[in-house]
Amino acid sequence: MHEVLRAEIGKGLRVQLAHPVGHVITLLISTMMYLGLQFVLGQGELRQDLLPQTLVAIGGYWFLQYAGLVMVADLIEEKRAGTFAQSQMSPAPPWLPMLGRLLTASIFGLAVAAVAALVPMLVAQIAIPLRWAALLPAVLLGVNALAFTFLLASLALVSPMIGALQSLFTSLVLLLNGSFLPLELYPDWLATAARVLPTTLGIEALTQTLFEGRTLTQLWTGGVLPWLLAHTLALTAVAGLLFARNHRRALESS
């Protein structure tokens, strides 16, 4: 099983790195977009009081956006080329190559998110305190984003409209997850709606530990952590059901 997973990740990395131009362009865009956005929102200046929280959110956005893009593009190409069907004619369970693809996508998502956060930190002197308590929310944020990526991938197996759906959802995430303004500045109804989207609850949990010094216990009693877990589990369950349903249909049409 480990051999299959390692093979899948290795193959995924090689296939992606065979065409590096797209990744380089994304890295450039990701570094420039955030500062440009904040400069416009700050009406010609970078507002230091808003930068740290929004920077964490844009990192979450880029992880979700790019992992999803890599995953969906990879699946569509593999279906078209017939390598998806080949990968399913193996003794490995069907979900295992999918997990490998998801982990590969997460590597690229993480790389873009890291660069998208680090460059503005250096350029605009944004200080983000590092706390151990933030580790779990950070991991859960990643898992939450990957659960959504899994859902998109499960839809991509059969839906020709996946590109449009993906654009719609990632745009909503960019607009509402706190990348423009911290969530507490939104009206209550909009903040509640934003929490339904992937990454928002994870970013909320992460910023509360990083900037407000909250402990994990406080996050739990405050409700953010249970909601984040429930949200992630719900996304994973829906994605798993869709995968079970669409995987067979994808093979039949391959």
């Binding site: 193959k11 090689r14 296939v15 065979a18 065409h19 080329a81 017939g82 390598t83 069907a85 080949q86 004619m89 391959s254």
Partner: peptide
């Protein structure tokens, strides 16, 4: 027990 080359598809990764 099984290996296959299917018609109408590449079967392998062209970028590898």
């Amino acid at each position: 027990q099984f290996g296959a080359v299917l018609e109408g598809s590449r079967n392998v990764y062209w970028s590898l």
